[in-house]
Simulated scan of single mutants.
Amino acid sequence: MSWVEWEEQTCDQISCLHCAIGSRIPLRTTWMGRTIKLLDFVGRCHISLLDERSRWPPGSVSYLKESNTLAVSCKDGWVGFRSVVLKKRLTAGDFYNGYLHQTLHRKSACDITRAQFITRKHGGDAKDMRENSTS
């Protein structure tokens, strides 16, 4: 119920999902095979820098230094989060410095997909999801 489907959900749908369950159950996605919780939702990102990236695939992640926000592309725009939980709670800046910065600055095309949050596919094996969320 708390999984974000970047390819299918609009900014407004993600906002509604956050309003409905975000105070009890954090929104979740997958980062490099591990479950990541998305915290401190800030809503739609209206930043001109991101307009150039409008062709980026849903789930693409960018760090906005001026607002210390992770911007994630979805079906119709970008939404922001100020912190995440991977192994522990991290601010957007900490996540950028520890994880995102390394993948965004690599040169090969295959690394671009690593700078994305991936939608969990429905019908996945529950055991696989538990293993991914604990690793």
Rank of each mutant, 00 (worst) to 15 (best):
V61A: 07
K37C: 12
R53E: 13
F95T: 07
D111F: 13
E52T: 12
S62I: 06
L100R: 09
W31R: 03
F41Q: 09
F95C: 05
G43N: 04
C110Y: 13
C16A: 14
R130I: 06
R24H: 14
F41N: 03
A71Q: 05
T91Y: 01
C11D: 03
M32Y: 00
R82K: 15
I25Q: 11
H101V: 05
V79D: 06
D76R: 08
V42S: 11
G59D: 11
W31F: 15
V42N: 05
H122M: 04
E52Y: 14
D125C: 15
R28M: 05
H105C: 02
T91R: 09
M1T: 07
D128I: 11
W78D: 04
E131C: 05
T91M: 05
Y99H: 15
S133D: 12
Q9Y: 03
S62T: 05
V84E: 06
V84M: 01
K88S: 06
S60M: 08
A71L: 09
C16D: 15
G43P: 09
M129K: 08
M1Y: 05
E52R: 08
V79W: 02
R55T: 10
S48M: 12
K121C: 02
S135W: 14
W6V: 09
S23A: 03
M32V: 12
T30R: 11
D40V: 00
E7L: 00
N132R: 14
D94G: 01
L70S: 03
S60W: 10
K127H: 05
F41M: 03
V4W: 03
P58A: 13
R130M: 14
S133F: 07
S62D: 09
L38A: 00
L64C: 09
G33W: 10
E5L: 14
L86Q: 06
K107S: 10
W78C: 02
R130L: 10
M1W: 04
F41V: 10
T69N: 08
L104C: 11
E52G: 10
S2G: 15
S2Q: 08
I36R: 01
E52W: 12
C11K: 12
N97V: 04
K127G: 01
S67Q: 11
S83R: 15
S83M: 04
D128L: 07
R130W: 12
L17T: 13
T119Q: 11
G77I: 08
T103K: 04
R106S: 09
V4G: 04
H105V: 01
K65M: 01
N97A: 13
D94E: 15
F95Y: 12
D94S: 07
P26H: 08
T10N: 07
G80E: 09
T30G: 03
L90K: 06
W56A: 12
M32N: 14
C110W: 14
N68G: 02
I118H: 14
S23I: 04
Y96R: 03
